[in-house]
Simulated scan of single mutants.
Amino acid sequence: MSGTRAARRRSPSLIACALIALAPYAAAQPADDQRLDAYVREALRSNPVMDAGMQALLASDLEARATRARRLPALGLEARYTRATGGRTIDFPAGQLFNPIHETLNRLLEERGEPAMFPTDLRDIEEPLLRPREQETKLTLRAPLYAPEIGAAIAARAAATDAARAGLEVTARTLVREVKRAYFGAARADAAEGILEASRDLLAEDLRIAKVMEREGTATHDRVLRARAEMLAVEQRLDAARAGTRQARRQLARLLGRDDAAGLVLPEAEPDGTPAPAPADPGPDAEADTVSSRPELARLDAAIAGAEAQVDAGQARRLPELSLAADYGIQGADYAVDSSDDSFGTVSLVLRW
């Protein structure tokens, strides 16, 4: 979770761009239906599929940035301090070579009456390959000069980001359509329930009148039975309508990410009892009236471009790569720059094939 939050902090521009891209889907309703507009926005914020798509888009964008960064020069600092004991040594038998020679020279000098001048107690030299103390501190610069594989990899990552963005648009379009369908479906079910309740009240009054007429002798008993049968039929339909209304409300609540459908507010019915008509939707479907603007096809095009870029990257691996490598620093037994000047610098052209 902390990695995801850090990634969001590192890339706020991507989140803003994604929200701007989804704004047409969230604000697809006219101004007279702010409630549906709020439900659409709530669904876009709380839907787990949308959140997963946003995270996939964010990850793809970060990977594309990392790939583009491979083209830039890299400057780094490297420091090393070493304490060494033992190890291999360079042996030079100085005593074994020069002591006999010096003895011979001294004897010749003594025969001539001159004092001995050459030492005869020289020891063999044993020099370790590793110094007891050693440090090396340097600045390193690495810069690619010719790297065709990096360009192909950048194109592949850009195509993957476009595919993730188009996939997010497809998910948003589908979610908005389902929310609208559930919203107006629940409104129709609620209005139908109201109509049946009104019909039941009318039939109950008709049954009462039929009973009064039967008592007064102006109607037969069959009219009472017929009125009772009609009211029972309406009550049966009313029970089914109530179950349908509950199911429609639960479906809308599920799309909104809610556990309880009690707080949902649906459009009110017209005065004649008919449900409020769904407003014309000039949303994403109206904007995508041409085949070329469909996000589904945009996602396919991005996938094709990504596959072609992968092929180009495979072919680019056969080409040579040329890069620049430069180092500058100090080395020696201690951290000091004195008259001996322990600083060094190297510049190299590196060819890899």
Rank of each mutant, 00 (worst) to 15 (best):
M1Q: 13
T4H: 15
R5V: 01
C17R: 14
A26R: 10
A26T: 06
Q29N: 09
D33A: 02
Q34A: 13
Q34E: 11
Q34I: 07
A43R: 07
R45L: 08
G53Q: 09
G53C: 05
M54W: 13
M54S: 06
A56N: 05
L58H: 01
L58W: 01
D61H: 12
D61M: 07
L62E: 01
A66V: 08
A66F: 14
P73C: 04
A79P: 04
R83E: 13
T85D: 14
T85N: 13
G87F: 10
R88P: 06
D91R: 13
P93Y: 14
L97D: 11
F98Q: 12
H102G: 07
T104C: 08
E111D: 12
G113Q: 10
E114W: 09
A116T: 10
M117I: 12
P119C: 04
T120K: 08
E127G: 10
L129K: 12
L130H: 12
R131Y: 14
E136N: 05
L145A: 01
L145W: 12
L145E: 07
A147N: 12
P148A: 00
E149M: 04
G151Y: 11
A152F: 08
I154W: 06
A155N: 04
A155E: 05
A159T: 05
A160W: 07
D162Y: 04
R165L: 07
G167W: 11
L168C: 02
T171P: 00
A172M: 05
R173F: 04
L175P: 02
R177Q: 10
E178W: 08
A182I: 00
F184S: 01
F184H: 08
D190T: 04
I195G: 11
L202N: 15
E205K: 15
K211F: 09
E216M: 03
T218Q: 09
H221G: 06
R223W: 02
V224R: 02
L225H: 13
R228Y: 12
E230N: 14
E235D: 11
Q236V: 05
D239P: 05
G244S: 10
Q247R: 15
R250A: 05
L252M: 04
L255Q: 01
L255H: 02
L256H: 04
D259F: 13
A261I: 04
A262W: 08
L264Q: 04
P267H: 01
A269V: 03
P271Q: 11
D272C: 07
D272T: 08
D272E: 12
A276P: 00
A278K: 06
A278N: 03
P282Q: 15
E287R: 15
A288F: 12
P295N: 03
L297Y: 15
A303S: 14
E308I: 03
G314W: 14
G314N: 13
G314T: 12
P320N: 03
L324D: 03
Q331T: 02
D334A: 11
V337Y: 00
S340C: 02
S340Y: 13
S340Q: 12
S343M: 04
G345N: 11
T346I: 09
S348D: 13
S348M: 09
R352P: 00
W353M: 12
